[in-house]
Structures are given as C-alpha cells and as structure tokens.
C-alpha cells in the first residue's frame, strides 16, 4: 500500500505519459461537456426563471428531478441513441470521446438549468420592475441577468464540472474504456483497482482531488478579488 502511494507520486512527478494521456482526455471530455451544457442550460435556466408559459412548472420539476439522474441512466440513454440500431447509429459515434461528451452533456445540462434558474430567479425578482420600466425585451433581460449573475453562474458551471469529472457510469457505457481512445481518470481508477494496479489508481485519484481543489481554490480567489466582489 505504501509502495503504491510512493509509486503514485513518482508517476505524477515524472509526468508519466500514460497518466497524462488519461488526465488530458478526462479534462477535454468533461470541460467540453460542461461548455455545451452551459450553452444549452444557461439560456434555458434564464428563460425558466423569467418567462411565464404553460408547462413551465412541469419543466422546473422535471429539471430539478433530472439533477439527480444516475450517470448510468444518462449513459444508457446515449447508448440507445448511438448504438448501431439507434437513431444516430449511422454516425458511428459509440465508443468515441464524442460519445462521452454527449453523455456527460446529458448528465450535466439539468444541473446547469436547475441551479442557474434559481440564481437568476432571485436576481430577476430584484431587477424585474426596473428592467421592465426601461422597456427591455425578454432577450435583453436574459442577457442582463446572465451578465450580472456571472459569478454565481461560474459556481454553477463548476458544480457541473465536478459532477462530470467524477462520474464513471456514463463514460464507461458509451466510451467503453478503450486504452488510448476513451480511457479517462474515473474509468481507469475502476479498472486498475480491479486489476490490482493500485499505483496508477491512486495516482489518478490524487490528480482528480488536485483538480477539484484547484477549481475550488480558484473560485474562492476569484470571489475574493475586489474586481468581482465589489459589485455586491
């Protein structure tokens, strides 16, 4: 056990090629998924927060419930879409990084929608009358709120990233954990642990922790800088 940890630190310290290949694929997949989820989820969250239309309540309940969607179910859904017999089968995306990005986007989008809706609804409550008195369009109001809530929304995006980077089920199902192709941190940790290769598993675990710490540290630093915090 002690050997495994020592070996893990060595792998990180020397920048082991296999390790970094896995880490960089993980980051690429999860960051792309979060970016896509934000692209879809932020405008949707803002619309749910400010627009009134039939079915809005149901949509809010749906997104709130989907926040807790088990990753394997997101994986299953995307698997069915991409499998040879599925509607998107001809694209031959199954077991590619693209498939993993799609699966994580499905997983993370509801989180972005639900959390950003809450943030924006609170701010909308405060801004609504002022903005309406200015004769702003709905689109204008959405953009204003997205901009003014940018810091809280960054936290929302990071929550989404945390979820994406930590999940195993979805990427395992649609990525297949193929060496050099679709192997990411979480799937590798699962596989190598079962094979008894604890060093690489622990090494990747440490990197995963480090990423989480860096992200949260950066966020706190950002909140602390007067450049952002002064707009109380």
């Amino acid at each position: 056990m002690g050997d495994a940890i020592a070996e893990a630190f060595r792998l990180i310290a020397v920048g082991d090629a296999a390790l970094w290949e896995i880490v960089s694929l993980s980051l690429r997949v999860s960051l792309t998924a979060v970016a896509l989820a934000c692209l879809i989820g932020l405008p949707l969250g803002a619309l749910l927060a400010i627009a009134r239309f039939p079915g809005r309540g149901a949509l809010i309940v749906a997104t709130n419930s989907l926040m807790g969607l088990p990753p394997v179910l997101a994986g299953l859904l995307v698997y069915l879409l991409l499998s040879r017999a599925g509607p998107l089968g001809p694209l031959e995306l199954l077991y590619t990084p693209t498939a993993m990005i799609i699966a994580q986007t499905v997983l993370v989008t509801p989180i972005i929608v639900a959390l950003s809706r809450q943030v924006i609804a609170d701010m909308h409550q405060e801004y609504d009358e002022q903005l309406r008195s200015m004769g702003i369009t709905t689109m204008g109001a959405v953009l204003t709120l997205l901009y003014d809530a940018r810091l809280s929304l960054l936290t929302v995006a990071l929550a989404g990233f945390g979820r994406a980077a930590a999940e195993v089920g979805a990427v395992m199902m649609v990525g297949g954990n193929i060496n050099h192709v679709t192997r990411v941190m979480t799937t590798t940790i699962a596989l190598e642990t079962s094979k008894g290769n604890l060093a690489i598993a622990v090494g990747l675990g440490l990197v995963l922790m480090l990423i989480a710490l860096t992200v949260n540290g950066a966020l706190m630093a950002l909140r602390g800088t007067q450049g952002v915090a002064r707009h109380v």
Binding site: E129, M134, G135, H231, V232
Partner: peptide, 28 residues
C-alpha cells in the same frame, strides 16, 4: 415605454460600475 422613464423610490442599480449601468441603459 422607453419614452417614459421612472426613477423608483428604491432605485435598483445593476451589479456593475457606474459607467456600466449607464452603458447598459444607453444600449437598452
């Protein structure tokens, strides 16, 4: 509505700089 402008009893200023608030208004 833009021909009429209101300064409310408790004005709501955006979470931006002074100039940022005015720029937002000019754009709106």
């Amino acid at each position: 509505r833009r021909r009429i402008a209101t300064v409310f009893q408790r004005p709501v200023l955006l979470r931006r700089s002074v100039a940022g608030n005015l720029r937002h208004a000019l754009k709106t």
